[in-house]
């Protein structure tokens, strides 16, 4: 947010335009404001209220104060889920972004059939949340899966990776990296905003590809990298579907893939403790909001806008 204030301070328009902006902003934001008031705000605030209650879904809620929030810190499984989620975010987000950027650049231009390749590489992401994925992932990382067949050539006897407590989370990270299609597409779109003349000038100056990448592509792509970073982070903290599908909803084996949101879901819908689940959700919001704020603050130093 700091960044926006900064921008607002430095760029001072005349008084007339500012007045005009206010009115125009009201028009442009009208749908969003209506949506916020009518559809978004109520469920949000309701869940905040419910986080202070013992809401079971099946009976009306009773106020219990901050009991739910206190309970979290004594809940070993909650702490486990927090650990799993942090590990997941820490590894899979950078890996996925790197993969997406790499392939976006490889698929950007200069080759025949790129449209086809792009679509092929996007295909896994289309499937990412499907129920079939549990089975497909077992075909790759299961006891008799592709990976172990490959290892068998070298005489290595692999585990059933998806269902081993030490490796299951790793396979989910790979699953996340595998579905890099979304950030890749955004990078692809972003790369086209980088004017080609910069590269031409740089080539004439004799800058290497690597130099060009770091001194042209990265800075000019930085708003998009920033976007992907912020959104993938928010998304990864809420990762649910893949762990849910692959572990059959348990977060197993032995809670090794018990993502925060998965645990929250179990509490809310399986143990009928929606009050506790809501408290967990708001605590997560606090964490993610803080990290996003840090992200925005840090972006002042590496994200370049043209305005």
């Amino acid at each position: 947010m700091a960044m926006i204030q900064e921008v607002a301070k430095t760029r001072h328009a005349s008084r007339e335009t500012r007045k005009g902006d206010g009115k125009a902003a009201a028009v442009f934001l009208a749908p969003w404001f209506i949506g916020l008031g009518l559809i978004t705000a109520f469920p949000l605030l309701a869940s905040l209220y419910l986080s202070f209650t013992d809401y079971s879904l099946l009976e009306p809620p009773n106020w219990v104060g901050i009991e739910n929030y206190q309970r979290m810190f004594e809940d070993a499984r909650w702490i486990q889920s927090l650990g799993v989620t942090f590990r997941y975010v820490f590894f899979s987000v950078p890996l996925q972004l790197a993969m997406a950027l790499m392939l976006a650049m490889a698929l950007d231009k200069g080759l025949r059939g790129l449209a086809f390749y792009r679509s092929i590489y996007y295909l896994p992401s289309l499937l990412g949340g499907s129920v079939a994925i549990a089975l497909l992932w077992r075909q790759v990382f299961g006891a008799d899966g592709l990976v172990n067949q490959f290892l068998a050539y070298f005489g290595i006897q692999g585990y059933g990776w998806v269902s081993h407590p030490d490796y299951a989370l790793g396979t989910l990270m790979i699953l996340n990296v595998w579905t890099f299609g979304a950030p890749m597409v955004i990078f692809l779109a972003g790369l086209r905003q980088v004017p080609t003349m910069y590269y031409e000038a740089a080539s004439i100056d004799g800058a290497s590809k690597v130099r060009q990448f770091f001194s042209i592509t990265i800075p000019l792509l930085s708003p998009i990298i920033f976007f992907n970073l912020v959104l993938q982070l928010i998304g990864a903290f809420q990762a649910f579907t893949q762990a849910f599908v692959v572990s059959g909803g348990t977060g197993g084996p032995i809670d090794s893939t018990l993502f925060y949101t998965l645990y929250l879901y179990q509490q809310g819908f399986k143990s009928f403790d929606m009050g506790y689940a809501s408290a967990m959700a708001w605590f997560l919001l606090l964490i993610v909001a803080c990290l996003t704020a840090v992200n925005f603050f840090a972006s002042k130093y590496w994200v370049f806008y043209d305005d």
Partner: peptide, 10 residues
């Protein structure tokens, strides 16, 4: 930033 599971019921 809120998981859908706590918003869906409201």
């Amino acid at each position: 930033m809120l998981p859908i599971h706590v918003i869906i019921v409201p």
